[in-house]
Nucleic acid binder design. Structure first.
Lengths: 334, 334
DNA sequence: ATGAAAGCGCTAACAA
DNA sequence: TTGTTAGCGCTTTCAT
């Protein structure tokens, strides 16, 4: 039933040349006559030859596949980075195995195991769960958003992230410029460097404006999602009054909008709101959201390029890339 | 530098048993003494043995990997189906190679080539570009949303889709029930069965209500996106007047909202709007959208289960699954 | 219960 | 320019 795949062997038979020569033609290395080349190529075509990457990989210890670990492909931010990565890598003839961890360390670990078993030749970690990654210390790796825990100095890896500190700073400035007095913040988890930096930058802005650090109420949330943003903003409203709110992710800000509305608070008249990421919901949501824009495509491209570079054995110029961000001002803050 | 992966060979050496036995222990087949088992397992652990799937696959002609072809992972509808698929398959110990085609037949073709080279043991096509797929006629495959073009009767494949006809019908009923007189429609491409069925169902509803089929203005759009929906609705407004609009995708409907607003038309008082898919933008957008809800998780799970079944050589009970849909009524139509 | 050995499809010496 | 051959890591007869 299943017409077994034609192998190099078969091609060798029908053309009368050795498998080695066939291989040479396929890989276009070594030398061979125009005539053989023609014959072999014709047979390749005719018999629908498809190289067996497993076999090739076994031999060369290199398969043109990279693994991508991502917490939530359903989140537009990650989806767009991932897409951009995959497009770039595909152009360089690499396949991409995308693994969704749902922020779960055990799942992540199993995914990693699998990728290692597949002998992938590189890895991209998009904001992976902080954990010991020594297992991949010898694999070309690119980390996005979060610093890995790797044995010092070991491994060829690289960190790419937006300038979250600056992003937080811009968000802070905006709320202050718009005249907010009492400021609160919804922040995703406390163990994630990107969100921490946003907080730091935000605080810096307050500080520069002469506000005391104690004045800022920060509420930590454990999930990024509209529902969560809604609930946590409700909780925030119970405990403090504020006229400015910074959410470290847009989805949270959207939830906040509903909580504020429910409370009868007008945006931006009574409360001004700034989100982060500038995904489409920020633009098209109930209240157009002021947000810190990150270039997801930029991150993806840089990430892919960097990985290709280290997989090629080149030394990357920079071990740590920081991409600029900017604030998009919309209705929610002005 | 790169600590070469320990192989079964290495384990054989350090334990003093043959590679065959090590293999047996790993795969827990054949017989071996408790004692050897213990020794081998200990060594496996100690040396961080990671099986080489390429080698195994070469031998067994089966690798635990499936390919997924998807047009746009950035679209929440596809992202959620894909995620659900990947979770289910992962539980069954399969990895997933996700390939984004951007609705481009050539890219799709290259992806397919790659997946075939990788010797994947199954394929999932989410709404792939209509094209000749005979190359994978012998590979266990599941198609979602669109009927493949395969040589008749050949291949073990299966089609899973929502009941788009019914969805279109519900949308039509809703607009009629809400009293719309002049109805228009924005439809994604004319060569895609799922969107065609939506139109058919929609027309059926109009017909049942005694409307003439000629009364419906349908505008075809070539892309799903807010921008596109905006532009095409503008164009629609130029040519006809309507008080009811059905968009075959939510993103288009969101665009429509802006075009209508710009024109000074109120939703739902002057124009009622129904979208399709019920993705989160429908819920959280400027105007909460009435939309036809599809169970993306359901599709994903059924798809994964079906594929696992055929990969196991079982005959699926049904070759064509039709999932129920329902209408979620929100502000845009009432 | 265990070992020896063949072979999956391919590439890379090494020969010719 | 081309062929022969070893071997990548693994599973699977076939012996023992």
């Amino acid at each position: 039933m299943k017409p077994k795949n034609v192998s190099i062997q078969k091609i060798s038979e029908v053309t009368g040349v050795s498998v080695a020569t066939v291989s040479r033609v396929i890989n276009n290395n070594g030398r061979f006559s125009k005539e053989t080349e023609r014959r072999v190529k014709k047979a390749l075509e005719e018999y629908h030859y498809t190289p067996n990457l497993a076999a090739r990989g076994l031999r060369t210890k290199r398969i043109p596949t990279v693994g991508v670990i991502v917490p939530d492909i359903t989140n537009e931010y990650f989806a767009r980075i991932t897409l951009s990565l995959q497009e770039r890598l595909f152009k360089a003839n690499y396949s991409t195995i995308i693994c969704n961890t749902n922020e779960n360390a055990e799942i992540e670990s199993r995914h990693l195991e699998m990728l290692l078993s597949q002998q992938v030749s590189g890895m991209i970690y998009i904001s992976g769960t902080p954990q010991d990654l020594s297992r991949l210390s010898h694999l070309p790796s690119v980390f996005i958003d979060r610093e890995p825990r790797l044995p010092k100095g070991e491994g060829k890896y690289l960190l790419i992230e937006s300038d979250h500190y600056q992003g937080g700073f811009l968000a802070g400035q905006e709320l202050l410029n718009q005249g907010c007095r009492e400021i609160a913040m919804l922040k995703y988890r406390s163990d994630i460097s990107s969100h921490n930096s946003r907080e730091q930058g935000f605080r810096k802005a307050l500080e520069q404006a002469g506000r005391s650090a104690d004045d800022l109420t920060v509420r930590i949330v454990q999930q990024v999602g509209v529902e969560e943003g809604f609930r946590q903003t409700q909780a925030l409203l119970e405990s403090v009054a504020f006229d400015g709110l910074f959410c470290t992710a847009d989805a949270l800000a959207v939830g906040a909008v509903y909580a504020l509305k429910e409370r009868g608070l007008h945006i931006p008249e009574q409360v001004k709101l700034v989100g982060y990421d500038d995904i489409s919901i920020a633009q098209y949501g109930v209240v157009p959201l002021t947000s810190v824009h990150q270039s997801m495509e930029g991150i993806g491209q840089l990430g892919a390029d960097a990985l290709l570079q280290i997989m090629n054995g080149e030394e990357p110029k920079e071990r740590h890339l920081l991409l600029p961000v900017h604030l998009i001002r919309r209705e929610s803050s002005e």
